[in-house]
């Protein structure tokens, strides 16, 4: 479904953030993209959705194929229409707009079936039903994380990518977020990539694991072979 082939990326034309990164993700998989802070996880996800040029970065070599067609150099709007949704770090939503408007805005990229997806979001996140007319800015960190995942669902993705969804959340909220991710993968059949620093729960859910360090993929293994000790060794090195 997604193939990243020998991708290099830089910021400000000089600072190398990704070096010869390759990965391959099949449909229906749930991939854990692990790595320490600053390893290049976020850069990789942004390279896939075409957001690097908006943050003074660029993909300088390699190719990114989604369902057989290249998305390298495509505008995020085009990538989004092809079916890739990125839930960015920092719970990026529209805090002055109501929750209903946030969800509606996210569906503009693919309006067909938006009403059904809206019901689906409310099914996964029932607490939103009571708050649809309230500004998104009033939500707590965990609730915001649920909202931005809901927004990603509204864009009708085939591939859902989440960038550090557990960051700054209480253990209970982290549990809830991963419950939802697992259900979306299992029930809605979404292909999912979750970038995290380390979450034991994620390793239990994942069907495949890539580890990134200093802009390179340093390990690709099934979750069963990925132990805390191995991860620690990679992170410390």
């Amino acid at each position: 479904m997604l193939a990243v082939n020998d991708v290099f990326a830089v910021y400000d034309g000089a600072i190398t953030a990704l070096e010869q990164v390759s990965l391959s993700i099949g449909p229906g998989s749930l991939v854990a993209l692990l790595g320490p802070n600053g390893a290049g996880k976020t850069t990789l996800l942004k390279a896939i959705v075409g957001m690097l040029p908006f943050e003074r970065g660029e993909v300088t070599a390699g190719d990114i194929l989604f369902e057989g067609a290249s998305v390298r150099g495509c505008h995020p709007a085009v990538v989004s229409r092809r079916g890739i949704a990125l839930v960015q770090d920092g719970r990026q939503c529209f805090r002055e707009l109501s929750i209903a408007e946030n969800l509606r805005a996210a569906s503009l990229v693919s309006r067909q079936g938006a009403a059904d997806r809206f019901e689906m979001v409310l099914h996964y996140f029932p607490f939103l039903k009571e708050m649809l007319d309230r500004p998104a800015g009033v939500l707590s960190g965990g609730q915001l994380q649920m909202l931005v995942i809901g927004m990603a669902i509204m864009s009708k993705p085939k591939l859902l990518m989440l960038d550090e969804p557990s960051l700054g959340l209480s253990p209970v909220m982290v549990q809830s977020v991963f419950d939802v991710v697992e259900r979306l993968h299992r029930e809605a059949g979404l292909t999912v990539i979750v970038a995290e620093q380390t979450v034991p729960r994620l390793l239990k859910l994942a069907t495949d694991v890539y580890v990134v360090s200093r802009g390179r993929i340093v390990m690709h293994a099934p979750p069963s072979e990925m132990t805390e000790e191995r991860l620690q060794r990679i992170y410390l090195n």
Binding site: F54, Q92, L97, A106, M151
Partner: peptide, 18 residues
Amino acid sequence: LMQRCAADNPRAALAIGI
């Protein structure tokens, strides 16, 4: 709505395809 999204948070607006 797209205008309001772009005004509120350009980074989030980009991510949802605006």
